[in-house]
Computed example of a mutant assay.
Amino acid sequence: MQTDVLLDRFLAALTPLDPVAVWAHGSLAGGDYQEGRSDLDLIAVLPSITPRTVWRLAKLHARLRAEPLSGQLHCTYLTPSADMDGRHLTWAHEELFKRPVTAVTRRELHAFGRVLHGKPPAELLPPVPDRELTDFVVRDQRDFWRPAVDNAPLWSRDVWVDLGLLTFARASVTLREGRLISKCEALELLPGLGAPVAVVEDIRARRYGDAVATVEDRAALTRSYLGPAIDELVAAYG
């Protein structure tokens, strides 16, 4: 697989920085990975992150750009003493910037993180209390996704339709049952949650087949469903 080749080359390029650990989360760890479609979501723990380290990481990722799938490799860099409430150096979307490692990501790492190198997550990351996970999921639905529903132009893009619905289904299960589910599981649950079946089938065809989007009004259908659904979920658990 091209994925394995890319991961091997990434780990080899990272070796001179003496990584303490490298982990996969998301689809790559959760069993729902689709080569060429899914992102490769990684966390690397380095002994320290200095200005010289940042420069070396920028060069490392620049050299990997010629590799197939390199544009889908996203990696956040931590140190063993990193503050989990802070923002951390991340390579994604062809650039370096800083972003948090969310409670969902950390719970994924503890639950089913895939160790690519070094120590397991349990030895380096504090556990995520249920309340912290619940609070994050509610905030994400209330403060990010609900305002986004009202921004109509966003929903002309497949990624917003797909992630909006799948994230809602995953949030619903986490809040109601306290567990994390894959995107594949979320897709199966969406019709039972009242999501528009035509849009769900459209997502399935594009994610797991070779079809292009065929539901012309999928943006309107998705937004008319998600707005009230998010409001109800937040009211119940917020």
Score class of each variant (00 low, 15 high):
His88Tyr: 09
Arg179Phe: 07
Val22Lys: 06
Glu177Asp: 13
Glu216Thr: 13
Val173Leu: 11
Pro147Asp: 02
Pro228Asp: 05
Trp155Tyr: 08
Pro196Thr: 02
Thr50Phe: 04
Ala103Ser: 12
Leu42Thr: 09
Ser224Glu: 14
Tyr77Arg: 01
Asp130Gln: 10
Val115Cys: 04
Gln72Asn: 14
Ala205Glu: 10
Pro16Ala: 10
Leu40Asp: 02
Ala21Asn: 01
Pro127Ala: 13
Met84Trp: 08
Pro100His: 09
Gly227Phe: 12
Ser81Thr: 14
Arg139Met: 07
Pro228Phe: 03
Leu166Tyr: 03
Arg207Asp: 12
Leu69Thr: 01
Ala171Ser: 11
Trp160Ile: 04
Ala24Cys: 10
Trp55Ile: 15
Glu188Arg: 13
Ala111Met: 11
Ala58Ile: 08
Ser48His: 13
Asp135Pro: 02
Asp135Phe: 06
Leu154Ser: 08
Val54Pro: 01
Ala122Ile: 11
Pro196Met: 00
Gly86Ile: 00
Pro228Cys: 03
Ser172Tyr: 14
Ile43Tyr: 08
Val22Ile: 08
Pro19Trp: 05
Glu177Cys: 03
Ala219Val: 01
Trp23Gln: 06
His61Trp: 09
Ala220Tyr: 05
Val197Thr: 13
Arg9Cys: 06
Ala44Trp: 01
Gly118Arg: 03
Pro228Lys: 06
Arg37Leu: 14
Cys184Glu: 15
Leu175Phe: 09
Ala236Ser: 12
Ala29Met: 06
Ala205Val: 02
Pro120Val: 09
Asp85Leu: 12
Ala236Gly: 04
Lys183Val: 00
Val104Met: 08
Ala29Val: 07
Val161Asp: 00
Arg52Ala: 15
Pro191His: 02
Ala205Gly: 04
Leu17Val: 07
Gly209Met: 06
Asp39Val: 00
Arg146Gln: 13
Lys183Ile: 08
Gly118Trp: 05
Ala44Ile: 09
Trp145Asn: 03
Pro121Arg: 02
Ala12Arg: 08
Gly30Val: 01
Leu109Glu: 07
Thr79Ala: 06
Leu163Asp: 11
Val212Phe: 15
Thr167His: 11
Pro196Tyr: 03
Ala213Lys: 08
Val200Ser: 01
Ser224Asn: 13
Ser70Asp: 13
Thr214Glu: 13
Tyr225Glu: 02
Val212Glu: 15
Ala148Ser: 12
Ala220Phe: 03
Arg204Pro: 06
Val200Gly: 00
Arg65Ala: 15
Val197Met: 11
Leu60Met: 01
Ala220Lys: 07
Glu188Cys: 10
Leu154Arg: 14
Arg218Cys: 09
His25Ser: 09
Ser156Val: 09
Ile49Cys: 04
Asp158Lys: 11
Arg65Phe: 07
Arg139Phe: 13
Val115Met: 02
Glu123Phe: 04
Lys119Cys: 11
Asp140Phe: 12
Arg204Glu: 07
Val138His: 05
Val104Leu: 11
Thr134Asp: 14
Leu78Ala: 08
Glu201Val: 11
Leu96Met: 12
Leu40Asn: 01
Arg170Glu: 05
Glu232His: 14
Ala24Tyr: 05
Gly31Ile: 07
Ala13Trp: 00
